[in-house]
Design a protein around this nucleic acid. Structure first.
Lengths: 227, 227
DNA sequence: AGACAGATGTTGGTTTTCCAACAAGAAGAG
DNA sequence: CTCTTCTTGTTGGAAAACCAACATCTGTCT
């Protein structure tokens, strides 16, 4: 399924930018990458990288391509739980937990390249005693920020109608930007996926909302109108 | 809004059980509770405990009653983002973040009693240097477990139909229990809230699923039928 | 400029959910 | 036991979302 691969310039960049390694010297990072418990792997499109049920002891940084958590229900129907794009970190919620068994398959959704690091071995490595605290703290920061994003996502998804989903999401984005006028990072299809609605129905709802004088928009720039 | 109050027997129990304090001696806990940066407060039903926009430097344990995060959108309509029941911990995702401004109001949804601890002052307290690492690690554990619960919740909510929401949730519960037969902790109204659907419509869908021979249930005990 | 691809917007018929009201069943108190 | 209350289940009309198909817009390439 997977072959050991070499790092490209762009891959190194991704590693430096990963929040897990914030505040860590590039020379130290370079040393970590060379350790035997750190591996670079290429994963072919549509293959299982880690199987549901197995213990996960590695943290995984997606260098290129796309991984996904894939659930299979009791009728053997599969669906995607979460997508990890290039640059995103996955696995720390398993590695650190008392129960580190994967609940879903981890699959390559495209031809992908990943960096995997055995967290236990990294922490135990005498060469990196000094940075263990930094990494552990980075992880806490990461999860805290992530928790707030997930919490907000749940709130947006829990709205009963498409209009309310959009308003909940856009209100939060407006608050983040500190202005009634703001830019969103999703295109229409991505926004529809995020809110778990049909793209075309969502477009239609946006039109109606504009007609109802709730907001104006052009591409990814929105303005909410005050009452 | 809030009066300083005394701790009851039941409150102390809640504090001992809080995952934040796992592995910490009861004598140490008793000392923490007496510190001036630790406060017990009674909050009247339907009052704002912490206002959106303010910085939150306390972690809050709900001793009795119920707190809620309340969002107000740009049209000044309010709705509940998340509920914190008795025994649940709130605030660490703000306290630890680089930006610790509250994005929502924190309100008492019932007459409630809370324990609030200033995390920065606790960590800085010379009396508790030895347990700082334990608490920090407990927090990481807590957030990691929470992240998986939130992730699963998002997956359940993102299903397009009531039937699929139910199947996603029930399949996960079945996997957790390690059996096709299992017990769920929600009653029908709570399950409907969790999945963001109408209770009555959900009941009807459960009936249809039973008729379609997908599962059987009686009260909170479910059995999924294999294909 | 013209051709093309990809993103965004529009529409109408079908399916699903909501909603409100009521029925049936279970649990507890007097 | 009956009465009460709470939870769960059922139903039909109204509202919303889905879906597929098509129209329009925008940016890019040659």
């Amino acid at each position: 399924m997977a072959n050991v691969a070499r790092l490209q310039e762009a891959d190194i960049e991704k590693i430096y930018l990963c929040p897990l390694f914030k505040g860590i010297e590039t020379s130290t990072l370079a040393a970590i990458i060379k350790k035997p418990y750190t591996k670079v792997t290429e994963c072919e499109d549509d293959t299982v990288v880690y199987k549901a049920g197995q213990k996960l002891s590695q943290m995984v940084l997606v260098l290129s391509g796309e991984l996904g958590l894939v659930n299979t229900n009791f009728r053997r129907e599969s669906s995607i739980v979460e997508v990890f794009d290039s640059g995103e970190l996955f696995g720390s919620e398993y590695v650190l937990a008392t129960d580190n068994h994967l609940t879903y398959d981890v699959c390559a959704l495209e031809d992908s390249k990943i960096l995997s690091i055995d967290y236990g071995k990294l922490l135990a490595d005498a060469d990196f005693v000094k940075i263990a605290g930094v990494i552990s703290n980075n992880l806490l920061q990461f999860h805290v920020a992530h928790a707030r994003a997930l919490q907000a996502h749940i709130y947006h998804l829990a709205q009963p109608t498409t209009r309310e989903k959009l308003l909940a999401y856009l209100t939060d984005e407006s608050k983040k930007a500190g202005s009634n006028t703001f830019h969103i990072r999703y295109d229409r299809q991505e926004l529809a996926d995020y809110l778990a609605v049909e793209r075309s129905a969502m477009c239609a709802e946006l039109s109606r909302m504009q007609k109802d004088n709730l907001l104006t928009y052009r591409k990814n720039d929105f303005t909410l109108k005050k009452k």
